[in-house]
Design a binder for these strands. Structure first.
Length: 777
DNA sequence: GAGCACTGC
């Protein structure tokens, strides 16, 4: 056997024959070639890898839905017109105050500089570094949409006889839906064509999942990155656009990395597919790390003169000063230090000024809340009162609301205990003091183990900067870092981009579906290691998305169009086959799973758990989580009276349930279009009839077509051992099968936290594993 | 016996 590390990757597949042999019912099976080729045990401890770009955000107009709503309608309206327009739109409701506030933005003075840069026919890429509050997201599209290069034109793409229309619209991408929609609302008011019901014409629109508002005559279109990637599938040259503005690139989402790869391809193609009409690209970042972007767009050096075509403009932000305090030396107990610091700030710092403290997770927040509330009882009467507000993603809407409201009572300080959610996703108003523990929980995919880890990890410098910036939104503030200055200096500059810490399965499928033959040579700012890509290719082949020579199959093309991870796409395709015939049920299940973290709210107290446990008996099924999701959706949609009331009673996550319903509608529509379903489907509500066990087995078997490798068998000692890699896994406590012993299990997720957990688990028979694997060969 | 945060024609 060859020794580790010297063998070229392609030859490594013959390794560890023993680890890839499965004995089921006395029959030995080789999973070689389809399984993890190097399934040596890898320590599952957190590792800190080099990080590349930064995480801060310009979120002046982007905040939580809660605070965004509050902001948008509080502005005084006056009639007036702006001089910033050559053609007056039909609907004129320009607001002098709006124009004035626009002119006060730091970016306003760079207006002609930005316009001039892109008027230069040799300049197709503009990099804009604008700090928080510079106004870049709202103003840059308005600076550009009336430029002459932005006009819609007729052109003949090479190899085509027909003229097509090219350009006319500016796309501007955002990582989050709320950002895309609230920015579109704001910009539409600024240009004088506010979005609203019964307004078919307008200059500004947006397009996000489940919500597309694109008026006739739209010149500026806000999109999420994912939506533009989907458009790219239909229109690889992005012909409807004259420019694409990529905002918040420093967040380095997986989608944005793919997006700029495709943009670079369009740029380096010489615009043949656009009849020679250029596509201008504006890259906007909140951090000054321009080099990665510059290098990406001008690479390989000498192959073209891209370096001359790329310009950089830097804009100062508008932010109040924040005084930063470090600990003199590392603290021994972070949780204890957080508590002490929060109380010290409360006693020493004047009102007004709320406190925002960054914790790593829900558990830490809950225990800290308890302790602070206890302590608050014993405060002297001349000390302000305390209102503690937890803030984390899994918290219900009502639970989060307090964090965004003023403390309410007089002589009271709000203390918000938050996870990373408060770093970029939402803005907490009223904060003057920030406490930063220096850590965050980060999910990281481990391709060798085919599993994820979720562990508290040290943050990056840009993350620390972003956290401290939260103290200076409304006035001068203070940030207390619970680590030393030298510890800060040891942080990486920026966080590891998502593409380097996630499963690239769907990313590779996306590339293949958009005609990228050689995935390894696709231009990326950061390239995952070839091992990860090879595994993804192998698994896509296993799922039937790629043929033996790596070309995309018809099934793969369908999977790429579906807005769900590739393995679920494979399940849907299998469900359409006559032997399974369960597309409707599979959609119900997949909708529940992909709607968010979980549709079941997790409960704190044991009494509440027991109480709801009894109520949930009516939807829980012994077959496991998949069938439990199915009955949940069937019960929910079968509910005649009040669905929200039903959610409350069973402690279901209402937001995720509604999202699941949206996904269900979308998937049903797409499956009808893709001929995976024949309509018409029965309308809701349908009377609830529990699914019979035979049918339940068929559905679970169908899921094995996507997750056949995510299986484990019960060992004699009562533990579960994975078929792939032979690791011990425990059934996660959130699963209905937690604590139960079944012959074998299939799981849809595999996460390491304090141990190896299988999540979304179903009971299976061992011979089903054989069937699922045999059906592949 | 446990849950960082986003997101998709």
């Amino acid at each position: 056997m060859p020794s580790a590390g010297v063998e070229p990757p392609a030859k490594r597949r013959k390794w560890q024959k023993d680890a890839n042999m499965v004995t089921i019912g006395g029959k030995a099976f080789s999973l070689e070639g389809y399984l993890d080729p190097t399934s040596r045990s890898e320590p599952t401890k957190a590792t800190t890898l080099p990080e590349t770009l930064a995480t801060t955000a310009d979120d002046k107009t982007k905040c939580s839905a809660l605070s965004a709503e509050k902001k948008s309608d509080s502005r005084p309206r006056k009639d007036g017109r702006t001089g910033d327009r050559t053609r007056a739109p039909k609907i004129v409701a320009e607001d002098a105050a709006l124009l004035k506030s626009r002119q006060e933005l730091p970016i306003w003075h760079h207006r002609s500089e930005i316009q001039a840069a892109l008027r230069n026919p040799d300049c197709n890429v503009l990099v804009l570094v604008g700090e928080t509050g510079s106004g870049k997201s709202t103003q840059v599209p308005q600076f550009l949409y009336q430029e002459s290069w932005c006009r819609r034109r007729k052109a003949k793409p090479s190899g085509s006889q027909d003229e097509v229309a090219v350009g006319g619209t500016i796309a501007i991408t955002q990582p989050r839906r709320v950002a895309a929609t609230t920015l579109a609302q704001r910009v539409s008011r600024e240009v004088g064509t506010p979005l609203g019901k019964g307004k078919p014409d307008g200059l500004v629109g947006y397009s996000v999942r489940f919500d597309h508002v694109v008026p006739r005559g739209t010149k500026i279109k806000f999109l999420t990155e994912g939506t533009l990637l989907q458009e790219l599938l239909r229109d690889p040259q992005l012909r409807q656009y004259s420019a694409v503005i990529v905002d918040e690139i420093h967040e380095r989402s997986l989608d944005v990395d793919l997006l700029v790869g495709f943009l670079k391809q369009i740029l380096t193609d010489g615009f043949h597919g656009r009849g020679g009409i250029p596509l201008k690209v504006v890259i906007m970042s909140a951090t000054a790390d321009v080099d990665v972007i510059r290098k990406f767009f001008t690479n390989p050096p000498g192959s073209d003169n891209m370096s001359e075509r790329l310009q950089v403009v830097r804009i100062k932000g508008r932010q109040y000063p924040v005084e930063i305090m470090h600990e003199p030396r590392p603290v021994p107990d972070i949780q204890d230090a957080l508590m002490k610091r929060i109380l010290k700030i409360h006693l020493e710092e004047p009102l007004p000024g709320d406190i925002l403290a960054f914790f790593t997770g829900q558990e830490e927040i809950e225990s800290a809340q308890k302790l602070i509330e206890e302590h608050a009882q014993s405060l002297a009467s001349n000390v302000p009162k305390i209102k503690v507000c937890p803030l984390y993603g899994q918290l219900s809407m009502e639970g989060q609301r307090d964090a965004f409201m003023p403390a309410g009572a007089p002589f009271t300080r709000k203390i918000v205990l938050a996870t990373n959610i408060a770093e970029t996703s939402v803005t907490v108003p009223g904060v003057r003091y920030v406490v930063d523990c220096g850590k965050a929980k980060v999910k990281k995919y481990r391709p060798r183990l085919g599993m994820e880890s979720l562990l508290a990890t040290v943050i990056s410098k840009s993350s620390a900067l972003q956290r401290s910036g939260r103290a200076g939104r409304e006035g001068p503030g203070k940030c207390f870092r619970l680590y030393s200055e030298s510890t800060f200096e040891s942080f990486q500059d920026s966080d590891l981009p998502e593409i380097l810490r996630s499963d690239v399965l769907s990313a590779v499928l996306t590339m293949k579906a958009r005609g990228v033959g050689d995935v390894l040579s696709f231009p990326l700012m950061d390239t995952p290691d070839s091992d990860s890509i090879e595994r993804a290719l192998l698994q896509l082949h296993y799922l039937g998305a790629l043929s033996g020579d790596g070309a995309i199959t018809l099934a793969g093309e369908t999977m790429a169009k579906l807005p769900i991870p590739a393995p679920y796409g494979a399940v849907l395709l299998a469900a359409a086959r006559p032997e399974f015939d369960c597309v409707v049920e599979a959609i119900d299940i997949i909708s529940c799973i992909t709607s968010g973290e979980d549709i079941f709210l997790q409960l704190q107290s044991e009494e509440a758990q027991e109480e709801v446990g009894a109520l949930r008996k009516e939807i829980q099924r012994r077959e496991g989580d998949i069938i439990t999701y199915l009955t949940s959706m069937q019960r929910y949609t079968g509910e005649n009276a009040d669905r929200n009331e039903w959610c409350k009673r069973l402690r279901m996550n209402m937001r995720n349930m509604r999202q699941a319903l949206n996904i269900r509608r979308q998937l049903r529509g797409m499956c009808l279009k893709e001929k995976l379903l024949t309509g018409p489907l029965p309308a809701d509500p349908q009377p609830f009839t529990p699914i019979d066990p035979v049918r339940a087995d068929i559905i679970v078997k169908c899921f094995m077509r996507g997750f056949g490798l995510k299986t484990a068998m019960l060992a004699p000692d009562g533990s579960y051992v994975t078929v792939q890699g032979k690791h011990v896994v425990a059934i996660h406590p959130a699963s209905v099968l937690h604590g139960q012993k079944k012959e074998a299990i299939m799981f849809l997720e595999h996460v390491f936290t304090n141990k190896n957990y299988a999540k979304r688990v179903s009971a299976i028979r061992a011979n089903w594993i054989v069937e699922a694997l045999e059906s592949r060969y």
